[in-house]
Design a protein around this nucleic acid. Sequence first.
DNA 1: GGCCGTTCAACCCGTTCA
DNA 2: TGAACGGGTTGAACGGCC
Lengths: 280, 280
Amino acid sequence: MDNSSDKKDDTSAQKKEVLSSLQKICLVCGDKALGYNFNAISCESCKAFFRRNALASKEFKCPFTNNCVITVVTRRFCQKCRLEKCLSIGMVKEFIMSEEDKAEKRRKIEENRARKRQRDPDDAVTSSKNVKRDDEGDTGVIPLQDTVIQYDTLSTTCSPSSTVQSPLSNDLDASLQSPQYNYTPSAPVTPGTEQPYPMKIYPIDEKSVINRAIYEQRMMDSYIYENVDSNMYGETKQNSISEKTAHRETRPQHVCEEIPSTSTNPDVNKARDILQDVER
Amino acid sequence: MDNSSDKKDDTSAQKKEVLSSLQKICLVCGDKALGYNFNAISCESCKAFFRRNALASKEFKCPFTNNCVITVVTRRFCQKCRLEKCLSIGMVKEFIMSEEDKAEKRRKIEENRARKRQRDPDDAVTSSKNVKRDDEGDTGVIPLQDTVIQYDTLSTTCSPSSTVQSPLSNDLDASLQSPQYNYTPSAPVTPGTEQPYPMKIYPIDEKSVINRAIYEQRMMDSYIYENVDSNMYGETKQNSISEKTAHRETRPQHVCEEIPSTSTNPDVNKARDILQDVER
DNA sequence: GGCCGTTCAACCCGTTCA
DNA sequence: TGAACGGGTTGAACGGCC
Ligand SMILES: [Zn+2]
Ligand SMILES: [Zn+2]
Ligand SMILES: [Zn+2]
Ligand SMILES: [Zn+2]
């Protein structure tokens, strides 16, 4: 069908194109993907799905074998398996902004807007998102539309076990015994500021550590593509592309930019631990 | 300037539109349909009928010869044949919410309502006004979305809520590819030790129907992919603004959607035949 | 340009009521 | 029984920071 791309004339541009097209497939459902979302190549819908459901405290249930094949068509049919697949292909729920993060972001945006408006008063536009109604005795200055909602409150109970293990780490280790993973037990990880988080929410520090780990994971993505591919994620399309070996050097860099830089802690070991924890 | 693809896109869009208008016909009775219900294009009445009766344990009896032609007029006359037709054209009774699910949903709605009430204790419905200022005149009024938050804190067990879940793919996979998969009704394979649905047992024949639907679905899948692949995945990118109606193409879903005219599913073909008959 | 969150219309499931 | 409706979920499009 794609006769246009038949010519594989080693133009690196072309190669790259093929490569990129290969990677533009959601690892969850096979739909078209634009890039990474929460650390995995995924489509817009799976991105939204993951963001909406991964932090929910409730657990979906699949009345069958917890093995539903997720495709662009069937993805809506079983939330449980879809979410599980999201996790198994490497989406990281810790990357979802917490309520606080979101609030802060909103605040920042508002700030910027205000600044800009001040600079160009004539062009005033929408702006203020939360106007406070006076008729109600609201105490705080909090944006009213999103109540706090602690998703993690209580109920850590779930996830007792079962579920599939993330193939990612396993495959990683197995397929390429990366020497870079020789970690040594040390890791002080300065506790420093203690976060009053009641539970599962990772303090900033830890989060950045996770990011670090994620970075590594990403580095491995290309390998996964090469080795695992069709057999692992089962029947996602026919896929067939033969020149897999060609795409070695996927994605240039841009990996590090995600790291918030709040903490420069090079503690990869810990990161890995946490990551595995997370994956579990 | 890829006008060629443009044209193709156009054509395809057009075709799709025609198709979609054609498909707004209930596959069961020929009445006007609004969309999919329980995985098949069907009218409101057949939807209600199916929901009410598909899970009923009692058997209907055909007053005639089990061969009733179901039309918008005759659909009331024989429940037996109507239900059968529903199943044969691809409606899936597993998509009907279980009692448990419904209760959960009700509870959730109630919860949301309460929360909202609490937030806006004063009157309701002030949103009649659409403040859609674009240019200027910063009114200070904000859109104030009334959609609510997604993750509600603590719902314990969750459930599928509105979207249907179905193991379809799984079953499909199993039954189509591994014949050894002999699903025994007694063991729905619930990892959870507790009893899921009170009546989650699927008789064999029913299952085959599901599988057939799923098979169709999968066929559809590849069909869609082929079609979409070139024009949409190829250069969708910006896609430009254009009409809103144009976007619908990414959503191919469901079983017998755009089956051209030759379907691999005899039932659907038959349904279509009958349908045409009916229309006459 | 990548990747977050946000928005909103469409979809589809259940409920209600005549 | 079926038309009308309420509402949760989904996903495309978009805004915005980096
Ligand atoms: Zn996806
Ligand atoms: Zn499932
Ligand atoms: Zn009908
Ligand atoms: Zn009959």
